[in-house]
Computed example of a mutant assay.
Amino acid sequence: MDNDAQPLAPLLRKLISLGPVTQGEVAATEALPLTLCEYRPGYEIVRERDRPAQACILLSGMCCRFKIIGDGDRQINSFHIPGDMPDLQSLLLHQMDHGLLTLTRAKVALVPHPTLLQLVAAYPRLGLLLWRDTLIDGSIFREWMCSIGRRSARVRVAHLICELFLRYRNVGLVEDMTMPFHLTQTHIGDAQGLSVVHVNRVVKSLKRDGLISLSNRRLTIVDWESLTQIGDFDEAYLHLTPES
């Protein structure tokens, strides 16, 4: 699907990866009234304690959910790629308990909450697919807890790379074994509970061992089997369908 012709193409790819979608459901999704926005890196789309009246759909770029803890340090709770609706929970939880931050230049579509509620009332299966998506979010949170609590730094970083690769591939943004990679070492450290020095050491070791290569904000996985072994990676928690 062409993003210029249909701005919601990333969301439609995501929905189709979650389960069967009819032409009527596609048409209803494409007909959603949108406010299209472009944000610079480091822009807070939503702040903690906000009460949003609309949900955002990430069309391009990357963003993250995050919290600032008492001493001012940042904990990144999740990374989001095109097709994701990272503040969908605001549809039912009326106050945000975290912020949503762009990590790159990002294009976003904003959809009013009442419109989304009308869509899922008219097309209940779309509501189930969005529910499935939030359940998968929860599964990813649980896996991140295991990484931060029990895995070594090298395992954590390898695991994260494997996860992002499959998520990008799931929405058609991988070429061969190469994916977009906009994360800095600070982003990875804030997500995985590691210092920048530690992340730098791990990334260098993965490159030195011939597992990955990095160039121009693109990451290529050179040895998938070895990387998954090092990362203790089992894709079951992503709940990918056979079609995706």
Rank of each mutant, 00 (worst) to 15 (best):
G72F: 00
P52Q: 11
E38I: 05
K67G: 06
Y123R: 06
Q54Y: 10
N77F: 06
A106L: 14
M85V: 15
L116N: 01
I57A: 09
R74W: 05
T115L: 10
I57L: 10
E48P: 07
Q89K: 12
V26E: 02
Y39N: 08
L59P: 01
L119T: 00
C56A: 15
D50T: 10
Q75Y: 08
V26W: 07
T104F: 07
G72Q: 06
R47Y: 08
A109G: 15
V108G: 11
I69Q: 03
L36S: 01
V26A: 08
K107I: 05
C37N: 14
L34S: 07
A28F: 09
E30R: 01
L110D: 04
L88R: 00
G83H: 03
A109M: 12
L119C: 08
K67F: 09
M62Q: 05
P112I: 05
E48Y: 07
L59R: 02
E48F: 09
L100G: 02
C63S: 08
E30C: 05
M85D: 02
L59N: 04
N77L: 12
P112D: 12
K107S: 07
A27P: 14
Q75S: 13
Q95T: 15
H94N: 11
T35S: 15
A53N: 14
R74L: 12
G99W: 06
R74M: 14
G42I: 11
F66G: 10
L100C: 03
P41E: 14
Q118M: 10
T29A: 10
S60M: 09
Y123N: 03
F66W: 07
L100H: 04
